[in-house]
Computed example of a mutant assay.
Amino acid sequence: MALQLPQEEQALHAETFRRLTTFESLLARTAGTGRGLVDDVRDRLAAGGLTG
């Protein structure tokens, strides 16, 4: 027999999972942006466009 949570508590869990999924997506986008920034700076340094 499976234990069921009250509907209100289920709704709170669902909202928490939704927020975690949104947060995970934002972290992934931020990581991608950071990698792109590092790559751009690295390329400019290699081309002599920036000084260390």
Rank of each mutant, 00 (worst) to 15 (best):
M1D: 09
M1E: 11
M1C: 00
A2H: 14
A2M: 07
A2L: 13
L3A: 01
L3I: 12
Q4M: 03
Q4K: 04
Q4I: 07
Q4E: 07
L5E: 11
P6Q: 14
P6L: 08
P6W: 04
P6H: 12
P6M: 05
Q7P: 15
Q7Y: 15
E8H: 13
E8S: 15
E8F: 09
E9V: 15
E9T: 15
Q10H: 00
Q10W: 02
A11I: 14
A11T: 05
A11P: 01
A11V: 15
L12T: 07
L12H: 13
H13W: 14
A14E: 05
A14S: 09
A14C: 00
A14T: 01
A14W: 02
E15L: 06
E15I: 05
E15N: 13
T16F: 11
F17P: 04
R18W: 08
R18M: 04
R18K: 12
R18F: 02
R19A: 08
R19P: 00
R19Y: 06
R19Q: 10
L20V: 09
L20Y: 04
L20K: 02
T21G: 06
T21W: 13
T22A: 15
F23H: 10
F23P: 02
E24A: 12
E24S: 07
S25Y: 11
S25C: 03
L26F: 08
L26M: 09
L26N: 07
L26T: 10
L27P: 08
L27D: 08
A28W: 02
A28T: 01
A28P: 08
A28K: 09
A28H: 04
R29Q: 11
R29C: 09
R29E: 14
R29H: 09
T30G: 08
T30P: 08
T30V: 06
T30D: 07
A31W: 08
A31E: 08
G32L: 08
G32E: 10
T33Y: 05
T33G: 12
T33F: 12
G34C: 15
G34R: 11
R35P: 02
G36Y: 03
G36K: 01
G36L: 10
G36F: 02
L37C: 09
L37K: 05
V38E: 14
V38A: 15
V38P: 00
D39E: 14
D39H: 11
D39T: 02
D39N: 04
D39Y: 07
D39P: 06
D40S: 09
D40C: 07
D40A: 05
V41T: 06
V41N: 06
V41Q: 02
R42N: 06
R42P: 00
R42H: 00
R42I: 05
D43Q: 11
D43T: 00
D43Y: 03
R44F: 01
R44M: 05
L45F: 06
L45T: 13
L45A: 10
A46I: 00
A46S: 09
A46K: 10
A46L: 08
A47F: 02
A47N: 13
A47M: 11
G49Y: 04
G49K: 14
G49F: 03
G49R: 15
L50T: 10
L50D: 07
L50N: 04
T51Y: 05
T51W: 12
T51C: 05
T51I: 13
G52C: 10
G52D: 12
